[in-house]
Design a protein around this nucleic acid. Structure first.
Lengths: 332, 332
DNA sequence: CTGAAAGCGCTAACAG
DNA sequence: CTGTTAGCGCTTTCAG
């Protein structure tokens, strides 16, 4: 098999424990230091992290459980990965595609791998499936969701304020008939974004029409269908707010398909600003979540916990984003 | 600490090895079976995978090293993850952002974690940094790249044929002045795609103009600049072939910015079909790589190797994609 | 500072 | 089928 610490010990006529100490940055007599260094290099010795983890119960590894890999997630992951690695940790990323079973598998896999901490994203954060993590007292952080009854840290974007800004933009420009294609009710983010929408109408004392509220499911398809349904109404809205990226893709496709002129006939603002927002014509006004920053923050907090610092536990971070005004909204 | 196999043994008055056997699916007397099951559940016992890996030298884990997380990679990863998990393996994903140092770190991390196999993607597949993997005889597969002198499996999309198809579409519709914004020369994929472009002109006996060949670097920025440079030419091309997704985003942005009418003034085809291709107007004609399939194939081959099956080693899979004709090309 | 010895949790051999 | 024993590669006491 491969070279072990024993081999190095034999080679140098030193004890295993001395080699071990050296490998972990401990103090060793300068002369031995050199001898060891030389032998390690010559033999091509690499400590076996598995064995090391077995003793020390620290693996310098953190588990990330996401719903799926997509354009949106990727930016968060970039932030997480960067921060984690800067702190000497490595991420193990699993996806569950909103399947409770896969999520459970992933969690158990990660626990068996003895990760030092876990970040979970999306709806499944809620409820029982994270309980075993808490039981084992593994630091746990929720991303893009909050469950009030669980003692853990959270990082979310301020969706209510974000959607408030987006919808207010519409209202300020004179729109009163404003539709929304929201996310599925079970999602924390969806509820937040809907809340922001509703609050605008409350604040501006405009009546909200039930038929303008379409519950989508965050997929391309539901964005597409949402627009179709809205457009078929006797009195279609003059503006619409789309609650996430994928649905926006579908919505724009439907708008093109139906030959609706944007923004002349229909104004649009969207949550989740993406590269294509400024490429499609008209350029889309949108609310940009600080995705990478969310990842960075999440990782930072988790690192803190893994270092045993529970000073501000449990922490709920709600990051602000920014509204970007482009050309998809007209004044009425 | 947590519950170990010893605890279960004590609880059931059976030997550790019996529990172990049961946990690994071995045959156990029905009565004991029940007893064990019950105790495992009651105690909440989960085998420690670290310890297990230490003994068995199998970790059921495979390392994935990618250049970065992006829209394109995500689809490949989906295929990999799905296939791996269906076979009982879990991926550990690392990115290196084209930094040789980070790539090395990642490789060592994965080897220390004793992964059963590794998939590497992108340019850095080449050369020395994968050598330690081969040395240790860990199954290794290269994705989106090929290095001829290394004995390992590869999965790539047939970029030459893909770009041939894309460019031929242009030529068939009467374009002779065709520009290309290619990838950086060091990339296997970039060379392949350029090769396809050149071969079309060879086959159709059309002269290629040097100034129509712009070497980009696969980024948004370079796509943008590429169009600008092409458009400034005394005799700008009437069509352009963009070699990847990010550059295409940039190219379309530039086309809009410059007020170039597409396809009237400039036709465009692109490598990498993405959702936005059929949303932007005009819809983009493009070559679609079978990204998810590439991931699936890669994982399948690796699984085979990890099972000790080296029957067809080394295997080089070159997957065909499809050209999708939309509205961004006009006939001259 | 160095070395000897014990043991992390598990599986692999081998008896029984 | 079950139990005993040894040991994976490393770290961690605890003497020296």
């Amino acid at each position: 098999m491969s070279i072990t610490i024993k081999d190095v010990a034999k080679e140098t006529n030193l004890a295993m424990s001395t080699i071990s100490k050296y490998m972990n940055g401990g103090n060793v007599r300068p002369k031995n230091r050199e001898i060891i260094e030389e032998a390690v290099k010559r033999l091509g010795y690499h400590p076996n992290d598995i064995a090391r983890g077995l003793r020390s119960t620290k693996t310098r590894t953190v588990g990330i459980v996401v719903s799926s890999f997509d354009t949106h997630m990727v930016q968060i992951l970039n932030g997480i990965e960067k921060t984690l690695r800067a702190n000497g940790y490595f991420p193990i990323i699993c996806s569950h595609r909103d399947s409770l079973e896969k999520a459970n598998q992933a969690i158990h896999f990660l626990m068996e791998k003895r990760v030092d901490g876990i970040i979970v994203e999306g709806i499944l954060t809620s409820q029982k499936y994270v309980l075993p993590i808490l039981d084992r007292e593994i630091p746990l952080l929720g991303l893009e969701t909050i469950t009030d009854n669980l003692a853990m840290d959270y990082v979310v974007a301020d969706g209510a304020t974000g959607s408030y800004q987006a919808v207010e933009e519409l209202v300020k420009r004179g729109h009163t008939k404003v539709g929304i294609i929201s996310g599925p009710e079970g999602y924390y983010t969806a509820r937040e974004r809907l809340r922001g929408y509703l609050r605008v109408f409350e604040d501006y004392e405009i009546e909200v029409k039930k038929e303008y509220i379409i519950e989508g499911d965050y997929t391309y398809q539901s964005g597409y269908e949402g627009i179709c349904r809205l457009w078929k109404l006797e009195q279609p809205p003059t503006a619409v707010f789309i609650c996430n990226y994928n649905m926006c893709l579908g919505a724009v496709a439907a708008i093109n398909q139906l030959g609706i002129h944007m923004p002349a006939e229909l104004s649009l603002v969207t949550f989740d600003d993406m590269e294509f927002s400024r490429i499609v014509r008209p350029h889309l006004s949108s609310f940009r979540q600080p995705l990478e920053k969310m990842g960075i923050q999440a990782a930072q907090i988790l690192v803190k916990r893994m270092n045993g610092d529970y000073g501000d536990f449990p922490k709920k971070v709600r990051l602000k984003g920014e509204f970007i005004s482009r050309d998809s909204v007209r004044c009425v």
